[in-house]
Design a protein around this nucleic acid. Sequence first.
DNA 1: AGCGCACTGTTATACTGTTTCATCACGGTC
DNA 2: GACCGTGATGAAACAGTATAACAGTGCGCT
Lengths: 151, 151
Amino acid sequence: MDEDTLTQALSRAETLCAQRGVRLTPQRRRVLELVCRAERPVGAYELLDQLRDGGPAAPPTVYRALDWLLEQGLVHKLETLHAFIGCTHPEHPHASQFLICDGCGGVKELEDKAIAGSLASVAAESGFRPSRPVVEVIGTCSDCAAKHGKD
Amino acid sequence: MDEDTLTQALSRAETLCAQRGVRLTPQRRRVLELVCRAERPVGAYELLDQLRDGGPAAPPTVYRALDWLLEQGLVHKLETLHAFIGCTHPEHPHASQFLICDGCGGVKELEDKAIAGSLASVAAESGFRPSRPVVEVIGTCSDCAAKHGKD
DNA sequence: AGCGCACTGTTATACTGTTTCATCACGGTC
DNA sequence: GACCGTGATGAAACAGTATAACAGTGCGCT
Ligand SMILES: [Zn+2]
Ligand SMILES: [Zn+2]
Ligand SMILES: [Zn+2]
Ligand SMILES: [Zn+2]
C-alpha cells in the first residue's frame, strides 16, 4: 500500500471508529498502520518486531490490538498463513474470500455473492447457522503462472 | 466413528493404498485409526499422546504420518482448528467444505458442486489457478441451536 | 477522594510445527 | 554375500504461534 492510500485508509478507520463510538487508540492505530503498510500478509511476531522499534512490547500487546482490529473488521486473518492483512473495504461488514498465491505471497480479497450464497444455502440445508465463513484459496496468481511458464 | 465403520474405513484405506502402490505402514495406519476413532477433530499432540501409549514418539513422527495421510486424501486438516479429521469418502480426490460447530465441536464434511463451481469461476476471472481451496464455516449446528434455544 | 472500567505492561507458559542428523529396513545390482 | 540407493523411523533441539494470569495506569463518574 503506498503512502497516500495508507493515509487515506487510516483516516477512514478513524472516521469509522468515531462513528461507532469505539477507541482507535495509538497502539491499535500503530498496528493497523503496520498491517496496511505491508504489501503482504504479516505475522503477529513480525508486527511485534516492528512495534519493538518504538519501545518494549510483548506478544499480548500485538494480539490484543489484532483481536480488536478483527472485531472492527479493519483487518482480516488468513488462517492458512497465520497472518493478517488490512481490509480493503472496512466500511460495511462482509464475508470475504481470499485468493492466496504461494508463488509471490500476494493476496486478493474478494467479496463474491455467488460464493457467499452457495455457502449460505448449503449451511441452511443442514440447519447450520454460520457465524464466520473462512474461504481461502491457495494457488498461483496470473503473474506467477506467466513467469513460471517462461522459465 | 463406531467400531464397524472404523474397521471398514481402515480396510478401504488398505485397498486404496494397495491400488496406488503406496505404503500404508503400521505407523500411518495407527495414526489413521486414531484420527478416525475420534468423534471430533484431533490435534497433532493429542495423537502424539495416544501414540506414546504404545512406545516412545516425537512430534515429527505424528506430523510425518499426518502429512502422508493428507497427501493420500485419507484425512483432512481443519485450518481454523489446527486439527485433523478422517475423510468420509477418500476414494476419489475432492475439494470439500466443512461446517464446524463451535458449540459441540462437531464437523460435517460436504462436497458441494455449487461452491466448488463459484470458487473456480471467481478464480478463473482473476486468472488464478487454485491448488488447494480451504472452505471452513464456523457456526452453530442444528442440535446446538436447538439446545441453546431451550436454555 | 473513591470507584469502575477499559487499556496497557510484564512474565511466564502452552500449543503447534520444523530442522537436523542418525539409524534402520527393503529391494535391486554386482 | 557385499554394495548401494531409497524410503521410513527415531531422537533431540529448536522455531513459530497464541494465551493465561496478574499488576499497573489513566480517565470519567459519584
Ligand atoms: Zn475485508
Ligand atoms: Zn503470485
Ligand atoms: Zn474428504
Ligand atoms: Zn453443535
